[in-house]
Design a protein around this nucleic acid. Structure first.
Lengths: 208, 208
DNA sequence: GGCTAATGTCAACATCTGTAGAGTTGTGAG
DNA sequence: CTCACAACTCTACAGATGTTGACATTAGCC
């Protein structure tokens, strides 16, 4: 007998009638909080409040904070799913194609939040740093085959630093004018750099 | 009368005899903790323990955590203090000179820790993000005069992203092989990119 | 020597955190 | 209908955190 009024009938505890999308709402709330505040400052209570739910339910669904983070920060769109084709048909070079692809990826809110959550959290939570590292190893190493020159590993990691730097400067530090620029415009500026890393001369100095 | 034994005489509380370097030790401990764990996970208790001191003393010296952070993360060596001259005499281009200067700056433990503390903390603590942004605005804008082309603001911020990306990928995410490479070697690879940003063609597309 | 300020510890505070356990209500299969 | 299970909330706990106030000891100036 926890319901004081039979007419209203809406008891706060217990399962809700009808189908439930709560689990997805928790995931979306978690992704946004992790993206905006990072691992430590995104709390169960904040996330649960955003999803309109009790914090304990989040625990029941996902077990622990680390598991929630892992579940909430897998990008809903992968680079491979984006169409490389239209840029390919435009006669653009590999650097510009890659730059456009990456910037286009960031336009998707879910993917951007997932990436940002990982980048932000990498500063304090080691498992998030692992996620970023594996992301780079997996996603960008696929582009290593585009690389003509030697030291493709060095080229790939430098390319990754340039991309990570743009993300960090644009969304975390908010460096101007980069933060306010259009994604396509940034892609144009990044293209020559990417070409440099992809196909430029090696800077190895074995006799230095 | 808190001393139970006059012979040993070393009471734990109260001021220590002789001059004190405690304040500097706290600053060093704070800088290291902030650099390795970021703002949130570097705690008063950790820092105080590293300095061999009571946490309350840290508060007494610096007031609050934010003030301690501000005091501990000002780089002990500035870019301007590093000698640009020797690289200049070697006939190297502006990109290589700048790359070497920045990598040389990171070799200094204090400067590296201060920068890393700010970068790591920028992910969660807004005042740290401010510090990074102002750092970029102040230090790197001094190199904007080296830039020939138009849009020096865009060029400077892109240069900053490349540098930030290297720092983030190398020390936070620890992307290989970049994390294990020598600073000078990285400078060689970065040089063409910096030249591109400093003096390369503009990517503005007013008619695009 | 005496006094003030600097240096130091200790115990405690209010608050927030992740998480556990018990209890309540709806769903769906038999 | 029944009954196991899934979806919920409530309460509470143990630990950590930034910060405070009271107190102890020494340094340095008159």
């Amino acid at each position: 007998m926890s319901d004081p009024d039979k007419k209203t009938g809406a008891s706060r505890i217990g399962r809700r009638p009808g189908p439930s999308s709560t689990r997805d709402e928790i995931l979306r709330a978690a992704r946004r909080r992790f993206a905006e505040a990072g691992y430590d400052r995104a709390t169960f209570r904040n996330i649960a409040a955003d999803a309109g739910v009790d914090p304990a339910l989040v625990v029941q669904f996902f077990g622990s904070k680390k598991e929630l983070f892992a579940a909430a920060t897998v990008p809903p769109v992968t680079l491979a799913e984006l169409s490389l084709a239209p840029a390919d048909a435009s006669g653009a070079g590999p650097g510009l194609r890659l730059a456009r692809l990456l910037m286009q990826w960031l336009e998707d809110e879910g993917a951007r939040q997932a990436l940002l959550a990982r980048v932000r959290s990498a500063s304090s939570e080691p498992s998030a740093a692992d996620a970023v590292r594996e992301m780079i190893g997996g996603q960008l190493a696929a582009f290593a085959e585009l690389m003509d020159g030697d030291r493709p590993d060095v080229r790939a990691s430098l390319l990754a630093t340039q991309f990570l730097g743009v993300v960090f400067a644009r969304f975390v530090v908010r460096v101007e004018p980069l933060a306010s620029m259009d994604g396509k415009e940034i892609a144009d500026w990044l293209a020559p750099t990417f070409d440099l890393y992809l196909t430029g001369p090696s800077q190895d100095t074995p006799f230095g």
